[in-house]
């Protein structure tokens, strides 16, 4: 347990609240696998090929790694709070600025049509989206869940894909209250039904 927490602290020196958040995320992401381990009488051991002798007990279970170092503009957090607390928007689209130094808000919208929203996703460029997703929980009435979508279409330029993928964590860490994360590379992965499916699967 402790090993996980230690290494989950962000590599850049930051406030303690951030590292606590990082810790929670780590716990959530790996909770079920740890539960599995607890349930089984013996810990899960990955056996390396008998031909390769490089098993390193000193390595922690997983290791956080590099990020682009791109910053998050304050307006991102403001817009997010407006969506989350004041219900001012249905969705927010984030982009990188031209210099690739900062994540900025590209668009906010209160358009309720999911299809119109999909029209806002560029076919060959990356974006991030926060979407206030409303749905009928099977047998449980109306629910709202905040979706975090990383949109990285296959046809986007490799440089953009790389910068977006390595900056995503910075944005995600500054937005608390995201319930569902989606990695989208084509429109089928962000279709209403697949998002609904993912939203329904959660708690």
């Amino acid at each position: 347990m402790k090993g996980y927490i230690d290494i989950l602290a962000p590599s850049a020196p930051e406030t303690s609240s951030v590292s606590q958040r990082g810790e929670k995320e780590g716990e959530r992401a790996f909770q079920s696998s740890r539960q599995n381990e607890r349930r089984s009488p013996q810990p899960l051991i990955i056996r390396y090929s008998t031909l390769s002798g490089h098993h390193h007990p000193h390595h922690p279970a997983f290791v956080p790694t590099m990020s682009s170092g791109v910053g998050v503009n304050d307006q991102c957090l403001t817009a997010f709070q407006d969506l989350k607390l004041k219900k001012k928007f249905k969705y927010i689209i984030f982009n990188l600025n031209k210099d690739l130094t900062e994540i900025v808000v590209e668009k906010t919208s209160d358009n309720q049509s999911y299809d119109d929203f999909l029209g806002d996703l560029p076919e060959t460029e990356c974006r991030w989206v926060i979407y206030d997703f409303e749905f009928e929980k099977e047998g449980g009435g109306k629910r709202n869940k905040i979706i975090f979508l990383s949109w990285s279409p296959d046809d986007a330029k490799i440089k953009q894909k790389m910068v977006f993928a390595s900056s995503r964590d910075a944005l995600k860490r500054s937005l608390t209250g995201v319930a569902v994360e989606i990695q989208g590379t084509d429109f089928s992965e962000v279709a209403y039904e697949s998002v609904l499916d993912k939203a329904n699967r959660g708690h």
């Binding site: 992401a29 390595h59 997983f62 290791v63 956080p64 390595s166 995503r168």
Partner: peptide, 15 residues
């Protein structure tokens, strides 16, 4: 790779 982290216990490799 999960959220930019290597999930080390899932690494498997062979020659």
């Amino acid at each position: 790779v999960v959220d930019g982290f290597v999930l080390r216990k899932g690494l498997s490799y062979s020659p």
